[in-house]
């Protein structure tokens, strides 16, 4: 057992967990912004998929990973704009329209794959430029930390910066305060002159950009190809991370890391003599188990019996 553990938990495992955390972390940060502004973004999955597609397309046609990342962010943002207009302007049901965007992203990416590259299932080409791996100065030569934290793609480092920036913006700026106020009580915020709808648009657009970036890490960072439905539920896992993190930046980042570790574990166990299906279902199982074990404790709702008694007492 100890032998098995030491075989699994080494610096390589931790480094892959760090890589795997990034897509979930970026999408979860976007989801967090929406959630704080009082809206629900169910389409993280689809936005991420658009990003993954955009990254491969951009990188394939220009040969530059930077263009890939740019197109990923652009596609994620544009899709998110469409989504936010229907939700905020047309007051569509966030859940249904979000699910529709997920399906639309799946449909659009498979359709584009077929028309642009005449392939089904997956698109691999040597002309797709992957994200480079950058060494962090100083840390790279540190004994354990260097192997775990250095040598990742620029998107990984960007995701850490995003967490710090969002943490600062949400808790230390007027914008962050207004955003949280909108989520807490939109009407009260409006009476104080906060333009709540504008803030919700900003939250959606940022979540689209971040999810697009997450997709770029998926298709150009972890691998260098595009696969049908390659997000495989990570957008929904990111939603779980928002709930588990109790809508606190540090909490959401922690929850994302937990899911990243679960995915790293999956990668690691694939070499061992365990049926692959069991290994592949691990992230989803772990997600459900953590949802049960670490569920946020809501203030207990008033039970109907108590409410009835209270109502009876109030009536003269």
């Amino acid at each position: 057992m100890i032998h098995l553990l030491s075989q699994v938990f080494d610096t390589q495992f931790l480094a892959s967990a760090v890589r795997m955390t990034t897509p979930i972390l970026l999408a979860a940060m976007g989801g967090l912004l929406c959630s704080l502004s009082g809206t629900l973004n169910v389409a993280l999955e689809g936005l991420m998929l658009m990003g993954a597609f955009g990254a491969v397309a951009g990188s394939f046609y220009t040969g530059s990973w930077l263009a890939g990342v740019g197109l990923a962010v652009l596609l994620g943002t544009l899709t998110s704009v469409l989504l936010s207009v229907t939700i905020i302007k047309y007051k569509a049901n966030e859940l249904v329209v979000g699910l529709a965007v997920n399906l639309a992203a799946l449909g659009a990416t498979t359709f584009m794959m077929r028309t642009l590259w005449q392939v089904k299932g997956s698109f691999i080409d040597p002309r797709i430029a992957p994200l480079p791996s950058w060494r962090l100065p100083l840390i790279h030569h540190a004994p354990v930390l260097g192997k775990v934290l250095s040598g990742h793609t620029p998107v990984v480092y960007a995701s850490w910066a995003v967490v710090l920036i969002i943490n600062y913006v949400i808790y230390h700026t007027a914008f962050g305060l207004r955003l949280r106020a909108t989520g807490e009580n939109a009407r009260a915020a409006e009476t104080l002159g906060v333009r709540t709808k504008k803030l919700q648009y900003v939250a959606f657009i940022l979540s689209g950009a971040l999810s697009g970036l997450a997709g770029a890490q998926l298709s150009l960072g972890l691998v260098t190809l595009f696969l049908i439905n390659m997000t495989a539920g990570r957008g929904f896992v990111a939603m779980v991370a928002v709930i588990l993190g109790q809508r606190l930046v540090a909490g959401v980042a922690g929850a994302s890391l937990l899911f990243g570790l679960a995915e790293g574990l999956t990668m690691r166990l694939q070499g061992l003599r365990i049926p692959p299906q069991f290994v592949l279902m691990l992230p989803y199982l772990i997600t459900i188990i953590t949802m049960v074990l670490l569920r946020p404790r809501h203030p207990r709702p008033v039970l109907p019996e108590e409410a009835r008694k209270a109502a009876l007492e109030e009536t003269p």
Partner: peptide, 28 residues
Amino acid sequence: PFELRNVVQATIMFFVAANIFGSIGFRR
């Protein structure tokens, strides 16, 4: 390609959900 169907189906869902045509049930 066959995949056009995915796009059309998702667009249908999107329009129904987005309530662009003023359906009754979908407004929250």
